[in-house]
């Protein structure tokens, strides 16, 4: 089976799930990594260190800013001349688009957000959660190349082997410009809750502390407390939709049906009631801890450990207690 792995990155910063895809690819045999962008030598180098046997690089100024069309046309051209059987990608907003378009170009199909994969001869069967994870489906793609985007953290990340190298093949970009990037707002720091091993998440409760002033002021302090705990644990801050709608934190942090589906090792839900639309986004976390004032909150039905109490008191105390134990 000829397997390719697409290394998804944002301006050179690689989505960790790309390495998970490389690890999975390696378990099936030799792997070619594909890197598209501008000034991406470091990405190609890292791809070897995470296990790629060969790296095809398209380094072109026209690929500096990700846009669906030039990336898709370049990738489709590569795939139609080298005919891989299986193309693995991490699941991101970019790769959903890229693989979807290439599947049209190449008369094939795409299986997104895959949580398990098995190979029998040259037949690939994947498992993907559907209906918000309420049901699992096994599907196959009866054409080649088959595009499979992998759910983040569903497959182990391989160890990085410093200094490991291999042959780089350079290829050409294919021009297909249909839009232009006019700018970027720097107001939002890079957040990728999909990659995080620990998520400390806040809901409307984070804005509920009248002693700190109005809701907005309380939420600012509350999310700072959550950020401290997340920082200590090397994790990220998540949020419920109520917190996002309240303007307390940006949409990129939102967990749930209309936000992001996450599966960290540890999810600490603070001041989140546990509406179904939130639960579908986090119930696959390995360990769920809930901190909520209301003993009846549905979030406790999903949690392994619960604290009935005020997050403004419990979260900082937990940070102190964990810092002591982790020796940081």
């Amino acid at each position: 089976m000829k397997t390719w792995v697409y290394i998804d990155h944002f301006k050179g910063e690689v989505q960790v799930a790309s390495w998970e895809a490389l690890g999975l690819g390696k378990s099936l045999g030799a792997v070619t990594a594909i890197v598209l962008g501008s000034g991406v030598d470091a990405v190609a180098k890292a791809a070897f260190e995470y296990g790629a046997d060969e790296v095809i690089v398209v380094d072109d100024a026209s690929l500096a800013d990700y846009r669906a069309e030039p990336f898709a046309s370049t990738f489709s051209a590569l795939a139609s001349s080298s005919t891989p059987d299986l193309i693995l990608l991490p699941t991101t907003a970019r790769t959903r688009e890229l693989s979807a378009m290439c599947a049209v170009d190449l008369n094939s199909g795409v299986l997104t957000d895959v949580s398990a994969l098995s190979v029998d001869g040259d037949k690939v069967t994947v498992t993907r959660p559907i209906y918000e994870g309420k049901v699992l489906e096994k599907t196959v793609c009866n054409a080649k190349p088959q595009f499979v985007t992998l759910r983040g953290r569903a497959f182990p990340k391989p160890a990085q082997e410093a200094g490991r190298t291999g042959a780089v093949t350079k290829a050409e970009a294919k021009a297909d410009v249909k839009s232009s990037v006019e700018g970027y707002s720097a107001t939002e720091a890079a957040v990728n809750i999909g990659d995080a091993a620990v998520i400390v998440s806040g809901g409307r409760g984070v804005s509920n502390n009248p002693s700190l002033g109005d809701e907005k002021a309380a939420a600012e302090k509350g999310f700072a407390l959550l950020g401290e705990l997340a920082g200590l644990l090397g994790g990220a801050v998540g949020a419920s939709r109520a917190a996002v709608d309240g303007g307390f934190i940006t949409y990129a942090h939102q967990v749930g049906q209309t936000g992001k589906v996450v599966a960290p090792d540890l999810y600490i839900a603070c001041g989140i009631s546990g509406a179904i639309q939130h639960l579908v986004g986090m119930r696959n976390a390995k360990l769920i801890v809930a901190i909520n004032k209301d003993a009846e909150a549905p979030i406790f039905k999903q949690a392994r450990f619960g604290v009935v109490g005020d997050l403004f008191a419990v979260v900082p105390a937990l940070t102190v207690a964990l810092r002591k134990r982790l020796g940081k």
Partner: peptide, 21 residues
């Protein structure tokens, strides 16, 4: 091109919440 071959229910992990007091 893409066809479903099987559907199943995810394993249900019964979580019992331990309240820390």
């Amino acid at each position: 091109v893409v066809t479903r071959v099987e559907i199943s229910n995810p394993p249900t992990a019964e979580t019992v919440c331990e309240i820390i007091a």
